[in-house]
Nucleic acid binder design. Structure first.
Lengths: 122, 122
DNA sequence: TCGAACCATCACATACGTGTGAAGGTCTAC
DNA sequence: GTAGACCTTCACACGTATGTGATGGTTCGA
């Protein structure tokens, strides 16, 4: 598909799709006319990238963890250098901490809302 | 305590502490000399703010949810307008989605790391 | 009393995700 | 063949969280 369709299906501006490509987060083949051509998997990929961006990860980190996210896993493990593994472990824990923080605060909000409702059931 | 101590205890630059105050995320009383004076609770507050910022929330939103985070709850519920409640509900769900996304991807990274270790146990 | 170590405000700079628009090429339908 | 809807690259701009430095006041110990 071309960039317009991908933009519409993912709720992402064309500008950003080009930006994500520039940052190495998505790849697109090119037609003879220079137009980008995306496959179906790009839709999920873009949505995933946006989710991670929204969760506070910078493109630099997202790019590093993307190889982990391909299913079915078709990775050439020799690429996995010790530094890369260390980075991934660190990022894995960092993401867990972030999620923890979010859930903790989400619970606090929920609790607050419950209290408000109890105070004024209307 | 003064800003230097708070900065050290929270791992945050003085510049950012002043910025957070400017954004209404923390409050500080002032001494006769104009110096900011923070209480003990500021330490936790700053750490919480940083966690939320790191999780992708903008200061604007953090400011809105802060009243939910005070324990013990000492809130004047009449302040809770319907719009504010709607905002909080939205943000609560948004945070849950973010956390979900993070955990899903964290699991993918963990799975990848397990696979790498299995491939090369050394 | 002097110097170091704080503090204050203010201004400018940077990185990053994102918007917007210009200038121009390509495709399709009439 | 022309109009409109796509696409391309490029450049400039913005908001937000941050860094850095200038300039000057306060506190405190030698």
């Amino acid at each position: 598909m071309r960039i317009g369709e991908l933009a519409e299906r993912t709720g992402t501006s064309r500008r950003l799709l080009r930006y994500y490509e520039e940052q190495g987060l998505i790849i697109a083949s090119r037609g003879a006319n220079g137009y980008r051509d995306y496959d179906e998997a790009s839709v999920d990929r873009v949505i995933q990238v946006r989710g991670l961006l929204d969760a506070g990860l910078p493109t630099r980190i997202i790019k590093q963890i993307l190889p982990c996210l391909d299913k079915p896993r078709a990775i050439y493990f020799p690429d996995a250098t010790p530094e890369m593994i260390a980075t991934l472990e660190e990022e894995r824990d960092r993401m867990a901490r972030r999620a923890e923080c979010l859930l903790r605060n989400r619970d606090a909000i929920a609790e607050y809302l419950d209290a408000v409702r109890e105070y004024d059931p209307a």
